[in-house]
Simulated assay, not measured.
Amino acid sequence: MSIAQVCGVGGAMLLGAMSPGPDFLIVTRNAMLSGRRAGMASAAGVALGVFVWAVLSGLGVAGLLAASAAAFTVVKLAGAVYLCYLGVRALLAARRGAYDTAAEQVSADPVGVRAGFRQGLLNNLLNPKAAVFFVALLPQFLPASPSLADTAQVAVAATVVTLAWFVVLAVGIATLRRVFTRRRVRQVIDAAMGTLLVGLGVRIALQSN
């Protein structure tokens, strides 16, 4: 692949990553309320999910998923349920409002690095629209019969760009964590993010294939 093709993949991925969606919400919420490490861990999880989707697309597996109504529906519903689960947890936290803000700012992240990574990864892998996105994107930059090296180049380019964007997002948001972790502000954020996550989950579940 030429440098122009790799840059094209990177540019398309950057635009996709910057668009508000489930990945954006997960990284933003974890960076806001749990700090830089949790936000960056979520970014790494999303990036690994992108790498998996890119490889599967290059191998043709993602195309089979996008073409199979049953498989697409299963992944879609699983992703919708997961988003609703995260959203309901946030709404319950906002309702309780029992935040130990001072302790959270000094001690370990409430979400944690492992949980943040897991949320980012599952959130991306359970989004069937990612399969559709890569099935539409990759043929524009790969030859008709791509080699393993071609697929690897595309996957790495997509992963690096995605990771870079979400790490920058997480670090930028985490710098204002002292404001976001105030009890009243956190309640509002949890309520807003929870509502958005549940709404997004319901929207995904109701969308046609």
Score class of each variant (00 low, 15 high):
101 T>N: 04
144 A>R: 11
112 G>E: 09
111 V>H: 07
42 S>I: 11
74 V>A: 12
157 A>Q: 02
98 A>F: 00
152 A>S: 06
58 G>V: 04
79 G>T: 07
79 G>H: 01
74 V>Y: 00
48 L>A: 13
147 S>V: 12
145 S>C: 10
158 A>Q: 02
52 V>Q: 05
59 L>D: 05
126 L>Y: 00
75 V>I: 14
48 L>Y: 07
41 A>P: 12
93 A>Q: 02
42 S>K: 14
154 V>A: 15
144 A>H: 10
140 Q>V: 13
99 Y>L: 10
74 V>P: 01
128 P>W: 02
152 A>Y: 07
95 R>T: 06
143 P>A: 10
120 G>D: 04
69 A>C: 03
157 A>V: 04
76 K>S: 08
152 A>I: 05
89 R>M: 06
85 Y>R: 09
133 F>D: 03
62 A>W: 01
83 L>G: 01
151 T>L: 09
82 Y>K: 05
61 V>C: 04
141 F>P: 00
116 G>K: 11
135 V>T: 11
114 R>E: 08
84 C>D: 00
149 A>I: 15
136 A>L: 09
109 D>Q: 09
45 G>Y: 08
62 A>D: 03
42 S>T: 15
74 V>Q: 02
143 P>M: 10
48 L>V: 14
128 P>I: 11
43 A>I: 12
115 A>C: 13
116 G>F: 06
115 A>G: 13
107 S>F: 09
67 A>V: 06
153 Q>I: 15
97 G>N: 01
57 S>R: 02
123 N>K: 07
65 L>W: 01
156 V>S: 10
151 T>K: 13
156 V>A: 11
